[in-house]
């Protein structure tokens, strides 16, 4: 069977499209690459969806943590503490358990026990907590002058936040936020590994990698392939985030722009 045929059969297997049965003997390198690559669709889906949705909640959490009102600040602090303080492993366990119980209360919760929604919610909360902490750190270190200048222009409330505070916060938080994106992307491998069941052998990259490792009893082929895919996607994340970073800092002179980028990890 040619590799092209394999791609047609298994390229979208993780979504349930193509051949129903997984290969069961005489595993080729091509099958390894195609199936594990197919599983990456889920890792990318979880990564992007959680990151995009989490971004908004994170901003809200950071602002709430800055609030002088305890009614806003306390819940945000607790939320961040709970999700940053416990392993994702345990969060998945409790979320799955909770969703199962909710399901018996009302059919509305039916899709929540499936990974595409249930696990996404956990990852969404998780990344929101981590990013919220990063953004909070950035908010605290916004130069006083920026805010004073905004005041002098007569800005306040929403316009001041939208045009001055928020962009500065992003600029400061961006290097650490890039790291968070990488961590989150890696964390997506936990979804089927320990959290949620895999239906009809539709799983993520790690699911297929361990399928091969289990069938061939040789961990030295599938896992390095998985690692290869992840390094590739991690580099892609670093590239995309780098582009955003230079756009965020496009108003700065070149010399200073570089200096900002030289301080990764300071906040996270």
């Amino acid at each position: 069977m040619s590799c092209w045929q394999t791609i047609q059969d298994y390229g979208l297997r993780s979504l349930g499209i193509g051949e129903r049965l997984l290969p069961r003997s005489d595993f080729t390198l091509c099958e390894h690459f195609v199936l594990i690559g197919s599983g990456m669709i889920w890792n990318v889906y979880f990564g992007i969806m959680a990151l995009v949705t989490g971004f908004f909640l994170a901003t809200a959490l950071a602002v709430a943590r800055m609030s002088p009102r305890a009614a806003l600040r306390k819940p945000a602090e607790w939320f961040i503490f709970l999700f940053r303080g416990s392993p994702l492993f345990i969060q998945f366990f409790f979320a799955y358990f909770l969703f199962l119980n909710l399901k018996s209360v009302h059919p509305f919760f039916d899709p929540f026990t499936a990974a595409w929604l249930g696990a996404l919610i956990v990852l969404f909360f998780n990344t929101a907590a981590y990013s919220g902490e990063i953004f909070y750190g950035a908010l605290r270190s916004i130069p006083k002058g920026d805010v004073e200048a905004a005041d002098a222009y007569g800005m306040s409330g929403w316009p001041r936040f939208r045009r001055i505070i928020w962009p500065t916060m992003l600029r400061l938080a961006w290097p650490a936020y890039t790291n968070e994106a990488i961590f989150l992307f890696h964390a997506t491998t936990l979804v089927f590994f320990s959290g949620f069941p895999a239906w009809q052998q539709k799983g993520d990259a790690l699911y297929y990698a361990s399928y091969f490792a289990d069938k061939t009893f040789n961990p030295f082929i599938p896992y390095p392939i998985l690692a290869f895919y992840f390094i590739l996607f991690t580099l892609a994340i670093i590239g995309v985030f780098g582009l955003v970073n230079s756009r965020l800092n496009r108003h700065l002179p070149k010399e200073q722009r570089r200096r900002l980028r030289l301080r990764p990890n300071l906040i996270r």
């Binding site: 890696h186 490792a213 992840f230």
Partner: peptide, 15 residues
């Protein structure tokens, strides 16, 4: 730095 950071820790531990 780049390679080890790029691989999820689970995948690394497994082999």
């Amino acid at each position: 730095i780049a390679v080890v950071r790029g691989v999820p820790d689970i995948a690394f531990f497994l082999f």
